[in-house]
Amino acid sequence: MTTANPPAETCRLPEALARPAGASSWTNICAIAGVVIKEMYRRKDFYVLFVLTALITLVMGSVSIFNEQGIVRYLKEICLFLIWGSSLVIVITTTARQIPAERENRTLFPLLAKPVTRHQLILGKFLGCWLASGVALLIFYAFFGMVAGAREHHWPVLNYFQAITLHWFMLGIVCALTLLGSIVFAAPSSNTTITLVVTVGILLLGRHLNKVALRLSEPGQTVVYIFYYAIPHLEIFDVRDLIVHNWGLISWPIWAAGLAYAAVYAALFLSAACLRFRRQAVN
């Protein structure tokens, strides 16, 4: 399609409609994010997961074996593992269905027929899913913190703050990755499975890839090294020990660098999603 000038006899869009681009972009992104959040709290998935996690946390919190205080650490570890699992499931399943559901239910058509760009749609979906996951995380950690604090009579608020923010930013990377997946794969179920496998794979094996590379001969070594340096190392955000063992705080510059690292990867995945979606026909 060429970018020819409009024919002379066509009427012009009134000047009054030329809105400040930045302001309207932000309004559109927030409006789309608002719908995502509304959808989340009107569905049952989140409540089911929350009730399950809360129940298990409560049971764990009330367990006392031979009056052994050290047992609390193990219970905390199990509860945090549950919170990590639940938050990953919530963020991946919620994000994976966003764009495919818009296509399948045809809600994408009236939306894109408005002055909304596809970039705004992607960013709005990301913001909505990420904020929703943040709210879920806050509820999970608050509940866990109260149960654990009641047992230990110790309230390490800053440790919790660092753990939650790093966890939330890690979910931002996962959210952006899932959105990219939902543009590439048509079926939400395949996207959910692939993203879940990739995320869990990185969390479990990401840090060992360089050791694997050392044992390989060329060109396998280079390939594995490329993977090692290209993938987002989600495992660095896993600071559960801060809470489990009440370790000292991470230095604030390192904490900030971690957040910046997550922001860069999320931006990269979102840019790829926008580029891919930009020219995709939606008929």
């Binding site: 399609m1 060429t2 020819a4 058509f109 894109l112 027929a113 020219r279 026909a281 939606v282 008929n283």
Partner: peptide, 9 residues
């Protein structure tokens, strides 16, 4: 804007 034209405007 759902579909891009192959040619024309």
């Amino acid at each position: 804007g759902f579909v891009n034209a192959t040619a024309g405007d």
